[in-house]
Structures are given as C-alpha cells and as structure tokens.
Amino acid sequence: MDLHYEIKGSGKPIILLHSGAMDSRDWEFITPHLSKSFKVITLDVRGAGKSPVPNEPIDYVEDLRKLLDHLKIKKGALVGHSLGGQIATDFTLTYPKGVSQLVLVAPGLSGFKFSSEHAELESRVSKAAPDVEKMINITLNEPSWSVSFGKAYDLLREMMIHNIQKTFDWKTFKTASSNSAMERLGKIKTKTLFIIGENDSEDLFKIAQLYTEIPNINFVRIPGANHIITLTHPKEVSDHISHFLSLLEW
C-alpha cells in the first residue's frame, strides 16, 4: 500500500476521507472524539499529504478499495468531507456491500455542474499560480471558506500550502472515468447522514437537495458553520457522527 494512512482507537472501523486542498489533518480535531468508540482510519488520498503524487489518472475508488483490502476490512463506515464525500458516495455505489453506514459532510457529487461563480473563483485561483500565498488568500476570501484566526485557521493554511505546492509535482490532473453518481443516488440503500453548515455555498445546498434521492438519509444543518466545518465545529460534527453510528447495526 503506497498511500499514507493512520489508525487510532479500536472497535468498528470508520474511514475518514478529507476535503480537496487538504489532507488527513482535516480530521485532526475530530479523530480524538471518534477514536474513543471506534477504530478510526484517516487517509491521505493520492496527491495529498504524505501520499505520492499521481503518475497516471487517479482512481480514488479503487485506491480506497485497495486500502480496505490491505487492512482486511470487509465492511466499514465511510465518512467523507467535500471531495471525500464525493469519493465515499462513488465507492458506496460501486461497492455497496463494503459500506455499513455513509456520513457525508458538505460533500461533492460526481456529475454535478458547479455555478459560473464557482468556476470564476477557480479561474482566479488558477491564474494566481505559482504564487501559493495569493492562491490561498483568494480562496479564503470566499465566505464559504473563510475561517477566523486561531487553530483552525493556522491548520487550514498549513494544509493548503503543503497540498497546493504538492500539485506542482503532479504528473497528471486527470481522474479515472466513472459513471456520474448524480443520476444514481436513489440506488444507495445504505443508511446515510448528511451534515452541512448553514453558511455553506449555494452550490452545496443544491447538492444537498440532490442527495434527498437517497431513501435512508437524514440531514443535519449546523448553525454558524461554513464549508470548513470539520475544523471550526469539530465537537458538533463528532457528536452527530457518533450518535448516528451508535444507533445502527453494523
């Protein structure tokens, strides 16, 4: 297994999948809570954190499957934030028997077309390259990504500096082709929890509406939180995840 991962705690397995521009430290304030009751696996996806840069199109789903096979985990709960939520959804559609519960924290969704405003933001960030500080400042000026100064702000900047710089060494930005999840959400039978901050972007609330197609899904909206909810509201996120997982059969 060439991907970096860490395991803390014991019990039923939970795999935590981080947001884009971040790495497994996305869960740094949450893992201590969850590891009291569960076996928590945090992963740096390919191209992020301590994992290697991609030399060929990234297949996030197959990378996750290989990790679970490596750890001899036949079934576990998937918890994904943003890009990690998109990966968790795609994995659940591909390998439904391997997922006991699904927790989505402000997730992405394969097949979803983001707004022109989002595309314009991405364009401004891209044009600022290779000035990493400028790229980060443009992103953090976006209300759904803004974070007050403190531990959450410092950790977010640290992750973004590391992972943006790392992208300059990527050999490809392509991902392995897969079927869009957007038209297939109704096929997910896994019990699902969807967590979103009330101050997240309009695009994320449109995505949330699409996820209502999952038959067994519960929604939680956290006051005062935006897209960086895992860093700014770790106690609330941890409590909702723990409560949800404790109610269900594995």
Rank of each mutant, 00 (worst) to 15 (best):
T94D: 14
L247N: 09
H233N: 08
Y5M: 04
I41W: 04
K134G: 10
S100D: 11
V40N: 07
I161G: 08
V147H: 03
P143A: 09
L78Q: 10
H4S: 08
D63F: 04
V53S: 05
D154V: 14
D90W: 00
P234N: 13
K113T: 12
N179V: 14
K171I: 11
P96Y: 15
K166H: 03
A129F: 06
I222N: 00
P57A: 14
D239L: 13
P32I: 03
F91D: 03
A77K: 10
A119S: 10
K113I: 15
L71V: 08
S24V: 02
L78V: 06
S177N: 05
T89G: 07
F219A: 05
D239I: 11
D203G: 02
L83T: 12
I222A: 00
S51L: 02
A129G: 12
G186Y: 04
K97T: 05
K36H: 08
V40S: 14
K189R: 05
V45D: 01
G186T: 14
K74E: 06
K189P: 00
H33L: 13
V125N: 13
R25M: 14
S148I: 15
G150W: 06
R184D: 00
Q101E: 03
R25Q: 11
K39S: 09
L109Q: 09
V79K: 07
L93W: 01
E133K: 05
D69Y: 11
L34W: 01
N55C: 14
K97S: 05
F114D: 08
I196F: 07
L102Y: 12
S110P: 06
E142Q: 15
E202D: 07
V45C: 10
I161V: 13
E28A: 13
H81R: 04
D200E: 12
G111L: 07
Y211C: 01
V40T: 11
P57R: 09
L3T: 00
I41P: 00
N141D: 10
N137I: 07
Y211F: 06
P234C: 07
A106M: 04
A77G: 12
M159Y: 03
F173T: 09
S126F: 14
K235I: 03
G20C: 06
N55D: 10
S238Y: 12
V132M: 05
T42D: 00
H227K: 14
P52R: 14
G80P: 15
K66V: 11
E62S: 11
N137P: 13
K171N: 11
D26E: 09
A119V: 06
K72T: 13
D90K: 07
T89L: 13
G20T: 15
D154I: 07
A129K: 08
P13V: 04
